[in-house]
């Protein structure tokens, strides 16, 4: 069992010189569901992009599922860590829903029967089985978000890294999404501004600000510390 994320002293500078991560340390145990909160520009998305090697580690160390995120491991790491982007229009790039959900499994080199089975299972898991042959442009934002999650579930990942899953959803779609995330068994790291969802869904909270982890603890404890939340531009639920 290596369903873990280990980040040690991770530093990252964008080409324009902006220092997005300044020594991030984070360790997530198997099966944990962790919220990643903090103001815009705190480095949350940059950290997420490191977890399966979209951004190359410049300094420090990242291990996903026990594998160091390096060139030779990228294939394995990418099938173990499912990264769901904020804008589902970025995630759903294929002509039909089926093609999108099949994209990951196909690139894992699975047999076609297995790919088809995984696509059906993943769509069933997000309650979108009927949408299999639809065109993603014609779906609602809530439906697109669900399918975006299905596109990584079909790869059977051990870790899910979700960027702003509840952003832009109406209350009903948001409620449905929370229900869906609750029943998924994977280790989860959820970057979000939705503090109410954090309180409801994720037992552990990590606050990032200015490229560093500034607080890490149980959600009830962190959310009851009004001074801490205030200092990092967050609101108490």
């Amino acid at each position: 069992m290596h369903h873990t994320i280990e980040v040690k002293d991770l530093r990252f500078k964008y080409p324009d010189g902006h220092e997005a991560l300044r020594g991030v340390a984070l360790s997530i145990a198997p099966g944990e569901k962790v919220a990643l909160v903090g103001p815009n520009g705190a480095g949350k998305s940059t950290l997420m992009l490191h977890l399966n090697g979209i951004l190359e580690v410049q300094q420090g160390e990242v291990c996903s599922c026990g594998l160091p995120v390096r060139k030779e491991n990228l294939g394995k790491v990418r099938s173990a860590v499912g990264l769901v982007f904020q804008d589902p229009d970025d995630q759903l790039f294929s002509p039909t829903v089926f093609d999108d959900v099949a994209f990951g499994p196909l690139h894992m080199g699975l047999a076609e029967d297995e790919v088809r089975r995984r696509v059906r299972d993943a769509l069933a898991a997000v309650d979108m089985a009927d949408a299999i042959s639809r065109v993603s442009h014609h779906l609602s934002v809530g439906q697109k978000k669900r399918i975006a999650i299905a596109t990584v579930l079909s790869m059977d990942p051990e870790i899910l890294a979700l960027d702003e899953p509840s952003a832009g959803l109406d209350p009903r779609a948001r409620r449905g999404l929370i229900k869906l995330l609750r029943k998924l068994p994977q280790t989860m790291l959820v970057s979000t501004h939705d503090i109410r969802m954090v309180a409801e869904l994720l037992p552990r909270t990590v606050i990032m600000d200015q490229g560093r982890v500034v607080a890490d603890g149980s959600t009830p404890q962190i959310l009851s510390d009004a001074a801490l939340l205030e200092a990092h531009g967050l609101e108490a639920p």
Binding site: R78, L83, H107, M108
Partner: peptide, 23 residues
């Protein structure tokens, strides 16, 4: 910028430069 994000999303799911398709 969107094209870069789409490319990231493809790479995140194992894209290595060849577009694969079902038979």
């Amino acid at each position: 910028e969107r094209s870069e994000r789409i490319y990231d999303a493809m790479v995140a799911r194992g894209f290595k430069g060849d577009i694969l398709a079902m038979s």
